Simulated assay, not measured.
Amino acid sequence: MTMVLFRQVPVASPIHSLWAGTKMIAAFLLSLVLMFWPTWLVLGAVIVFLLVIGVVARLPLNTLPRLPLVFWVLIAIGALLNAPVGSQSVLNYCRILVFGLVLVTASFLIAWTTPMGEIAPALAKLGAPLRKLRLPVDEWAVVVALMLRSLPLLLEEIRILRAARKLRPKDRLLERAADAALIDILTAAMAVATRRASELGEAITARGGTGQLTAHPSSPTRRDAVALAVVVAVCLGSVALDWVI
């Protein structure tokens, strides 16, 4: 089973049919609530809400990324470093860790349920008021959209480069250099990324420039208003419950 990262999962669900801007606003509201009320109760409520969103979106279990063992080892080391300070320090460390994972999961849910072609138009529409300040809203939206679209391609190229390097004859001199494999892969990845960027720029120019990326018509509907109302209710309800308890 392959890991899906920053790619839409091709299933039909109510979450997939929502406007991309609605999902980004929802993620912003959840992050705003967790920023000012990062209690365990609010964190738990948001986690349950995200799990419900994943179920409603009909996301398969293999969509979740498999984190390497090194990640968990580093987390354990961080907890051990905070242990001598006291149990409260460890709890705060765990709270910050869960807070970060929740924000990352919310971002992944947007990517898993949204076509990448709808990100730039949604960002341009949400940032429309900033145009009055003469800010390059369309350019920012294009940069974000291209980054999200190119990152999975770059990760796939790195996997191919790693697999190709494993097939090379073993060299004892290269094996002695601990950073040799990493340097080779990063150098090749930079070359591939430069070539892809050049090809992508030529393709965008041939299709009429970056303005075409933000010209896709997209706007919220009644279901988006209902979805935002649910998100606001979850945020206010979790804060109110935490305040009472």
Rank of each mutant, 00 (worst) to 15 (best):
L30S: 06
L126R: 09
L213Y: 08
K23D: 01
V104Q: 12
V73I: 15
I245N: 13
L167E: 12
S17M: 12
G21H: 12
E156H: 12
S107L: 15
R195A: 13
T187P: 02
D138N: 14
L29Q: 11
R168C: 04
T210C: 13
W140K: 07
E156Y: 04
T63R: 15
T205V: 05
L133D: 03
H16Y: 12
R207E: 14
L200Y: 03
Y93D: 03
L18I: 03
P10R: 14
F108G: 03
L91S: 08
L123S: 09
W112C: 06
L34R: 11
T22M: 06
L101K: 03
V239F: 01
V142H: 09
L200P: 03
Q212N: 04
V98S: 06
D171E: 04
I77N: 02
D242H: 09
A206C: 04
I25S: 03
L130W: 15
V137H: 14
G127I: 08
S107V: 01
S89F: 13
P136T: 00
P84S: 01
T114K: 08
L18M: 10
P65K: 03
V56F: 08
A122G: 14
R172N: 08
L64D: 02
A227C: 07
L123N: 10
I96Q: 10
Y93L: 05
G78K: 10
L41V: 03
Q212L: 12
A76P: 00
P68V: 02
S219R: 15
G78W: 11
R58Y: 07
V244S: 10
S31Y: 05
V142A: 09
A225Y: 08
I185F: 07
I110N: 05
R66K: 13
D184S: 14
A188T: 01
S198V: 13
V192L: 11
L133C: 05
S31D: 10
D171C: 09
T105V: 09
E139T: 03
T194A: 15
W112K: 06
V137N: 06
V231K: 00
A203T: 07
V226P: 02
V144Y: 08
I119D: 04
A20N: 10
F28Y: 05
A111Q: 08
G44D: 05
V102G: 00
L155C: 04
R131Y: 07
P136Y: 07
L101F: 14
H216I: 13
R131E: 05
R149P: 01
P14H: 13
L43T: 00
V137C: 13
A122P: 14
L151A: 02
L200S: 11
T205F: 10
L241F: 13
F28D: 02
L228P: 08
E175L: 14
A188Y: 07
L133G: 07
S17W: 11
H16G: 14
A181P: 04
G201C: 06
F36L: 14
L80S: 06
A57Q: 04
A145M: 07
V104G: 07
V244R: 15
A45G: 10
S31A: 15
L103G: 09
L59D: 00
E156I: 01
A225E: 06
A120E: 08
Y93S: 10
I77F: 09
L161Y: 03
A79E: 09
M24N: 04
